[in-house]
Write a protein that binds this DNA or RNA. Structure first.
Lengths: 250, 250
DNA sequence: CAGTGGTCTAGACCACGTA
DNA sequence: ACGTGGTCTAGACCACTGT
């Protein structure tokens, strides 16, 4: 009854995948912090009782995702950079602002269960009028508005979403923690804000905005649709990477 | 004399890398077209005289980049999708337009060797005033302007750039073919166009534009800086991917 | 059935940095 | 000298697909 028919496959995960998950989880839950040493290949070989080539593949792929950094002759270490660096590095605007040494504040505008409008239903693979969670908030960087966030959440994927206290935890933080996505889509537009949007962002309605529309999936099912509106003069999106999947920072 | 001190390393490329390059080049230069069968692992083992694990790694990484699609029990095939799909899928606006079934035309505005302005010199890691190639053009989709391209090219990386006939080959096409990059950076802004830009794009100067700034590197040296200005109402940027480096299309 | 890719093993040699 | 990661080998077993 819960999620789709994505039941556990009969075959257990590949060994290299188990090692990947093991290390990735240690990093995700904070057991191993940036800069910490990751067990060497030999140590993981002993721990899992498998061949070094298998461990090597796991760590090599983690390095490709930028989760760890490997130095020949020295060891492997949890990456300092933000793990999302592969693409538009906007997973968490709060962290991003704090990393710049600035103060972040989120003003909650609304949180409700609403009937999905056509575009939202379509984006989340629901029927029109089916109920979805909707949350709106404004993000401030040192008390300057930098993002107006309009988010819709698929209740089937995050039934407890609406019961959260979003004055303590951001919507995105809750979702990343409880419904980790495995696929993401970004669309970027340049638009003029509506009068209402301009007022919320404390900007003139004649100045352009960057609108980032993001959708995420977990196990093939849409989780959330979020539209982030940024004043063009106060925000830009960026990414740097290598086409071959190697870590960007070099 | 030629390029920087990036001389060829004493050690030849890894074997799996040679296989990757071999296959990637066949695809890039059109020898193998989308849907074509790629040699099986066994065939490549025989061809290169190396172990299957080595070939396997090469093909597995190519699949991760989305260049090929592998089907267990059947074989490997050149991917149908655009290979750049990992990120902002704008490597070649001409192809993109043609894929939509529309007509593409490029109007060359200027092509010259100029002294690098401060921002360009900084972006390309050159000294201010050092000479760079500069090219400007407008791209049309069914005779509607969709992109104003302002490009600067590092002469050290592409000394013959300025001698090309850009009425037959696009600047980006020449660079992709002759100076394949291995690192790329994108920055996206929302701005209002200048009067001149608005006129070139046949749009009102009060409407917002999406500006995509792209830098590419080859072997750690900057190759090109290009600023692409798009009318906000006629263009958007998008990307879809999986954080684990797997192919996006699923 | 034979061919394919997916995975795994138990060794091996190398270049590198630290001690 | 030692431990690290980077690469490579020559086998192996499996699940799957096509004939």
């Amino acid at each position: 009854m819960t999620v789709a028919s994505t039941s556990r496959p009969a075959t257990p995960a590949a060994l290299y995948q188990q090692v990947k998950d093991f290390v990735a989880r240690k990093i995700a839950d904070g057991s191993w912090k940036p800069g910490d040493r990751v067990p060497s290949e030999q140590e993981l070989v002993a721990e899992f009782g498998i061949a070094r080539m298998t461990v090597n593949r796991a760590l090599r792929e983690l390095a490709g995702q930028g989760k760890i950094v490997r130095v020949a002759g020295v060891g492997s270490f949890v990456a300092e950079e933000k793990p999302q660096s592969t693409l538009l590095q906007i997973a968490n605007i709060a962290d991003e602002i704090r990393q710049r040494g600035h103060n972040h504040r989120c003003m909650l505008l609304s949180l409700a269960r609403v009937a999905a409008p056509l575009d939202v239903a379509s984006a989340l693979d629901l029927r029109t009028g089916e109920s979805v969670f909707a949350v709106s908030c404004v993000h401030f960087e040192d008390e300057v508005a930098v993002q107006l966030e309009d988010r819709y959440v698929n209740p089937r994927m995050a039934p407890d979403f609406i019961r959260q206290d979003f004055t303590r935890l951001l919507p995105s933080e809750y979702l990343v923690k409880h419904v980790p996505f495995d696929q993401i889509e970004h669309v970027v537009d340049a638009i003029l804000p509506t009068a209402e949007q301009a007022e919320l962002l404390q900007m003139p309605a004649t100045q352009p905005c960057l609108m980032l529309t993001r959708r995420t999936w977990a196990a093939g099912t849409p989780v959330t649709l979020v539209r982030c509106l940024h004043p063009g003069t106060r925000y830009r999106l960026g990414s740097r990477f290598r086409p071959d999947g190697t870590a960007p920072r070099g």
